Simulated assay, not measured.
Amino acid sequence: MQLIEINKTRYRRHLNRVIVACIIVLAVGSLTLSQALIALFPDESGSHFHWNLLGVIVSSVTIGWILNKYRTHDYMREVVYVWELKQALNKINRKMPKLKIAADAGNGDALLAIHYSYAGSRLLWHLDDNTIIMDELAIEQKKLDNLAAQYQLTLDANDYNDKMLKQF
């Protein structure tokens, strides 16, 4: 997955609207469905937990289906890209201890995966205005750059491929 520049304003606006729409659909859908089921199938004991749960489950599945159906729509482009980038970074982070050991030994794929992780994290943190730990990231990036120089490697995040992680 290539790192691309994202229009921060557009991304935040679209993400907020998608979140609000999902919340509204979940609330209205689950309440409407559960109330309809309660009216059709009342319980003498007064417990309608199963109908309420069914309403939430059906509404959640419907939201998931709608999001999946429209994931390729231009409106969702930035939102889906960031979601997929977060998944890619999570894959790297789960293997980070092994990657760091391999990077210290001079493994180019490990160095490249860590470099991609840092570049992707920087992009995400910029989009989310999470600048608190950017200084720590700069320190880690400097260490990585020193390792790459030590092993005479040039790191380019565009060269990263998630298949590299299989060896770790």
Rank of each mutant, 00 (worst) to 15 (best):
M1Q: 07
L3R: 06
N7S: 13
N7W: 00
T9N: 05
R10Y: 03
R10Q: 14
L15E: 03
R17I: 14
V18G: 00
V20C: 05
V20D: 00
C22F: 04
I23H: 08
I24Y: 10
V25Y: 07
L26Y: 06
A27M: 13
A27V: 13
A27Y: 15
S30I: 02
T32H: 05
L33R: 05
S34G: 08
S34A: 14
A36N: 09
A36H: 05
A39G: 03
L40I: 02
D43H: 14
S47K: 06
H50Y: 15
H50N: 05
W51T: 05
L53W: 15
V56R: 12
S59L: 02
V61T: 08
T62F: 14
G64Q: 00
I66S: 05
K69I: 00
Y70N: 11
R71K: 15
H73V: 01
M76S: 04
M76Q: 06
R77K: 15
V80M: 11
V82Q: 03
W83L: 13
K86D: 11
Q87W: 07
L89P: 05
N90G: 10
K91M: 12
I92C: 05
I92A: 02
P97T: 10
K98D: 06
K98F: 10
L99E: 01
L99D: 00
L99C: 07
I101R: 11
A103W: 00
A105E: 15
G106Q: 02
G106F: 08
G108R: 14
D109R: 12
L111M: 15
L111N: 06
L112T: 05
I114K: 06
H115Y: 15
H115E: 01
S117V: 00
L124H: 04
L124P: 00
W125G: 09
H126G: 10
L127N: 10
I133T: 06
E136I: 02
E140R: 10
Q141A: 13
D145H: 12
N146R: 12
A148E: 02
A148M: 11
A148L: 06
A149Q: 12
A149W: 03
Q152S: 12
Q152Y: 09
L155V: 01
L155M: 03
A157W: 02
N158G: 15
N158E: 11
Y160F: 15
D162P: 02
D162F: 13
K166P: 00
F168C: 04
F168T: 01
